[in-house]
Simulated scan of single mutants.
Amino acid sequence: MAATAADLAARETQCCGFFSFELHIADGRLALSVSTGPAHAEVLAALADRATALAGVRL
């Protein structure tokens, strides 16, 4: 799963260079953090809302 997340982050960086991605692996857990500057904060918030709706959980 870590390799898949890293590949996704690399591809998204090529597409959307205004996002920054950090992959964290600790205690057997994997997390992908996404950040951006103020100019694209609304875009990231909309994507997080969409992901939350699709997952049926609160992020």
Rank of each mutant, 00 (worst) to 15 (best):
A41H: 07
L23Y: 02
G37F: 06
L8H: 01
F21Y: 13
A39D: 11
D27N: 08
C16P: 01
V43Y: 14
L44M: 09
R29W: 05
E12C: 12
L30K: 03
E22G: 09
R29F: 07
H40P: 02
C15I: 14
A26I: 06
L23G: 01
H24D: 15
E12Q: 14
G28N: 06
G17W: 07
S35L: 06
S20N: 12
R11E: 10
L32V: 04
R29Y: 06
L8A: 10
I25K: 14
E22S: 13
A31E: 12
S35D: 10
E42L: 13
A39Y: 10
G28R: 03
A41N: 05
R11T: 09
L23K: 00
V43R: 13
S35T: 14
F18S: 02
G17D: 11
E22K: 11
V43W: 12
Q14S: 15
F18N: 01
L8K: 02
A39H: 10
H24Q: 14
G28M: 01
S33Q: 09
T36M: 05
H40A: 12
R11N: 08
L44R: 00
F19K: 02
A31W: 08
I25L: 15
E12S: 11
G37V: 07
C16D: 08
E42M: 12
L44I: 09
F19A: 03
T36L: 05
G17F: 05
H40I: 04
P38E: 05
R29I: 06
A9E: 02
L30P: 00
H40L: 07
L44A: 06
G28T: 04
E12K: 09
H24I: 13
A41W: 04
D27S: 06
A31C: 08
H40Q: 14
L30V: 08
R29E: 13
E42Q: 15
R29P: 00
A9F: 03
S20I: 09
S20T: 13
A31D: 09
A10K: 15
A10R: 14
L32R: 00
V43T: 15
L8Y: 06
F18K: 00
F19C: 03
